[in-house]
Design a binder for these strands. Structure first.
Length: 528
RNA sequence: GCCUCCGUAGCUCAGUUGGUUAGAGCAGCUGACUCUUAAUCAGCGGGUCGUAGGUUCGAGUCCUACCGGGGGUACCA
């Protein structure tokens, strides 16, 4: 492999060689167990437990490990900050505290910012008052051959505000080299820790209710359960086309038929569509199905779940999102879709013929064409005039049948279904319904979808899922089902305005020259 | 996909109506310095200006195409 190294990279390679010559292994095999993280040490000194002024105080002896960040050498002594997962702590290094020659030949000349090092020593407070470790032992744990961007933080003494110089803001750098972004930015790591807490909390919440976490196929011979274009792939041994799932709905409901009273799955779904601030082609969805319940009950569950999650992630139900503060404290308003439209636009569309709805849409300034059915029109009106205004969590209920091929017909309202979406900050984060369990009605709805697909609606699923219908024919209990977009919820709870900031490795176009080797030949024959 | 903005050193940025040899801070290198903290002081190196064409006596700057990214928009959660 030949790559052009920058000046600074060449220097680090030279340091690597020099370290080996000096008998210092740059990638040692031995473990370096730590006793403390930076934040723990700072916290211990914060509560004055180790205040040197205090009676009977013993200095803390610690072993820490992390990345060497800034190095400030002053002749025979030096300071640097060591960054570990928890934060940063300053290390004080003196020539005479370390083995003969180490300070001058290794520490000063051959160690670079970004190197991973282990330090042991006593904790003390510098003259300037910063809690630091006086290094007595110092080990290189891994050499860094590529310089991380150098950012410097200054805390204003008077205002207490932190100012960062030379902060890397280039989103391309941050997403492509997420490892560097994370290494540099504890606040980015914190977002992903919060996301993990969110998912864990959801699991605990659902497990506590006795629902069973399951795994269903990501590779599916037929796709369904949502309106979206799928990715396609191929299985060699079976010589069979497969789809990556767009939803797990139809498999989870098969499990309800099978006698599970509550099942859920937290899974990646894949949709072959455009990318945006709100869309990544693979994303994480929670789906939950509970037998013998309906959508009204499910609204209660969702309120409880979100309140619990907000508390777990944030410690409060009041969450800042952009310029708003969103309250996840239950209950949330429940507004029928058509009522919400009437309230916002003045048009009462309940049980109105398609042409009257089209006229209303036109009157509101929407572009209307003949292929749009009444369901689509209502969806457009809602999406344009109502949804963006719904900042606080709001249940919008009772969607038209045409938009909801898997939802049960409303018990009293003709042409509507028992379905709700939870809208928050102007976006859908949850979609749920009383599941359609009438196999004959389901077959008719599938056939209608196939008809739409043949007419050119490329989101409509173009095949009847006979196996799913067979399952329903055995009898599925009345069931409440729900899907919740984990990424979007994570965006809200971590106050990030792009989905890329809550996905560790969002999809990007391949980097030019990222692959400088000839592509590895892909074997297409089966077997191993 | 379409519209639009952006791409200059490892990082953050400047670069005039097109005009000598493309600048600064940080980082790096050499030296000084045993409590510094954007350490300081003295000196030094570092660029295919995203890529390829074009216009021009002359292009970082103007034009075209392409590559990559941001924002918006369409499909969608």
């Amino acid at each position: 492999m030949s790559r052009d190294l920058t000046e600074q990279e060449q220097l680090r390679h030279a340091h690597l060689d020099a370290l080996r010559e000096a008998g210092v292994e740059p990638y040692p095999a031995e473990a370096w167990p730590v006793t403390h993280h930076a934040a723990e040490i700072l916290a211990a000194y914060d509560d004055a437990q180790h205040d040197p002024e205090a009676e009977g105080s013993e200095p803390l002896r610690v072993r820490v490990a992390g990345r060497m960040m800034t190095k400030r050498v002053m002749g025979k002594a030096a300071f640097f900050h060591l960054a570990d997962e928890s934060g940063r702590i300053q290390i004080y290094v003196r020539r005479d505290d370390l083995p003969e020659g180490f300070y001058n030949t290794v520490f000063k000349k051959l160690l670079d910012p970004g190197d991973l090092v282990g330090v042991k020593g006593e904790v003390f407070r510098t003259k300037m008052g910063e809690v630091s470790i006086r290094a007595e032992g110092f080990t290189l744990l891994a050499k860094s051959l590529k310089p991380l961007p150098v950012e410097k933080e200054v805390v204003d003494e008077e205002t207490g505000e932190t100012q960062t110089f030379n902060e890397v803001t280039d989103p391309e750098f941050r997403y492509r080299q997420r490892y560097a972004d994370l290494a540099l930015h504890p606040e980015v790591r914190e977002v992903f820790k919060q996301r993990a807490r969110l998912v864990t909390t959801i699991r605990q919440f659902l497990d506590a209710k006795g629902y069973v976490e399951v795994e269903t196929p990501a590779l599916q011979p037929l796709y369904g359960g949502a309106a979206a274009r799928p990715f396609t792939t191929h299985h060699n041994a079976l010589d069979m086309g497969l789809f990556l799932r767009i939803a797990d709905e139809l498999y989870l409901k098969r499990l309800i038929v099978g006698g599970f009273d509550g099942v859920y799955e937290i899974a990646k779904d894949f949709r072959n569509e455009g990318l945006s601030r709100f869309h990544n082609p693979e994303f994480t969805m929670l789906e939950l199905y509970v037998a013998y319940q309906d959508y009204t009950w499910m609204m209660g569950l969702v309120e409880n779940l979100l309140e619990t999650v907000a508390m777990a992630v944030h410690g409060t139900t009041e969450v800042p999102v952009g310029e708003h503060t969103i309250s996840f404290a239950k209950p949330y308003p429940r507004v029928p879709l058509l009522d919400a439209i009437q309230e916002r636009t003045g048009h009462d569309l309940y049980q109105k013929p398609r042409d009257e709805i089209a006229a209303a849409a036109k009157a509101l300034g929407l572009e209307v064409d003949d292929t749009m059915g009444s369901g689509k029109l209502i969806d457009e009106i809602f999406g344009t005039f109502v949804e963006p205004h719904l900042i606080q969590p709001t249940f919008i209920t009772d969607y038209p049948v045409e938009l909801s091929p898997l939802a049960k017909r409303h018990r009293t309202r003709e042409g509507l279904t028992e379905r709700f979406e939870l809208i928050c900050n102007g976006k859908e984060i949850c979609n749920a319904f009383s599941e359609l369990n009438d196999p004959l009605d389901q077959r008719a709805r599938f056939e209608e979808q196939v008809r739409l697909a043949r007419q050119g609606d490329d989101e409509a699923v173009n095949t009847v899922d006979e196996d799913y219908l067979r399952a329903l024919e055995y009898g599925m209990p009345p069931t409440a089902g729900m899907g919740l977009g984990i990424d979007r919820l994570a965006m809200l709870l971590t106050n990030q305005d792009s989905i890329r900031d809550v996905i560790l490795f969002p999809l990007l176009r391949p980097e030019e020259n990222a692959v400088d080797a000839t592509p590895v030949e892909v074997r297409t024959d089966a077997g191993s």
